[in-house]
Simulated scan of single mutants.
Amino acid sequence: MNITTERLLIRPFKRNDLQDVFAIYNNDDTCKFLLHEKWTDEDMNKRFDKKLANCALTKESMLSLAVIYKNKVVGDLSVWYTEMKDTVEIGYSFSNEVAGRGLATEAVSSLVYKLFDEFNVHRIQANLDARNIASQKLCERIGMRKEAHFIQDFWNKNEWTDSIVYGMLTSDLK
Results as ranks from 00 to 15, higher is better:
6 E>T: 12
6 E>D: 13
6 E>L: 09
8 L>Y: 10
10 I>N: 03
11 R>Q: 08
12 P>W: 08
17 D>E: 14
20 D>S: 03
21 V>Q: 08
23 A>M: 03
24 I>L: 06
24 I>T: 05
25 Y>I: 01
27 N>F: 04
28 D>E: 08
29 D>Y: 07
30 T>N: 07
30 T>C: 07
33 F>T: 01
35 L>I: 10
37 E>K: 12
37 E>P: 10
44 M>Q: 15
45 N>T: 12
46 K>H: 12
48 F>I: 01
48 F>A: 02
48 F>W: 07
49 D>S: 13
52 L>F: 12
54 N>M: 12
58 T>P: 13
58 T>Y: 13
61 S>A: 15
62 M>Y: 13
62 M>L: 15
64 S>A: 15
65 L>P: 00
65 L>Q: 00
67 V>E: 01
69 Y>H: 13
69 Y>E: 02
69 Y>Q: 08
70 K>R: 11
70 K>H: 14
75 G>F: 14
76 D>P: 14
78 S>M: 15
78 S>F: 15
82 T>E: 04
86 D>Q: 12
91 G>D: 05
92 Y>G: 05
95 S>Y: 03
96 N>A: 02
96 N>D: 07
96 N>E: 06
97 E>T: 02
98 V>W: 02
99 A>R: 04
100 G>C: 02
102 G>V: 04
103 L>F: 05
107 A>P: 03
108 V>M: 04
108 V>W: 05
109 S>E: 08
110 S>G: 06
110 S>K: 05
111 L>E: 00
112 V>H: 01
112 V>K: 01
114 K>D: 07
114 K>C: 11
115 L>Y: 06
117 D>I: 00
120 N>F: 10
123 R>S: 11
123 R>F: 13
126 A>W: 06
130 A>L: 08
131 R>N: 13
131 R>S: 12
132 N>R: 09
133 I>D: 03
134 A>E: 10
134 A>S: 14
135 S>K: 13
135 S>H: 12
137 K>F: 12
137 K>R: 15
138 L>D: 10
140 E>Y: 06
144 M>H: 04
145 R>D: 03
145 R>H: 09
147 E>Y: 06
149 H>E: 07
151 I>L: 06
155 W>A: 05
155 W>D: 03
156 N>T: 09
157 K>S: 07
161 T>F: 00
162 D>N: 09
163 S>R: 07
165 V>E: 03
165 V>A: 04
166 Y>D: 00
167 G>V: 01
168 M>R: 04
170 T>D: 09
171 S>H: 07
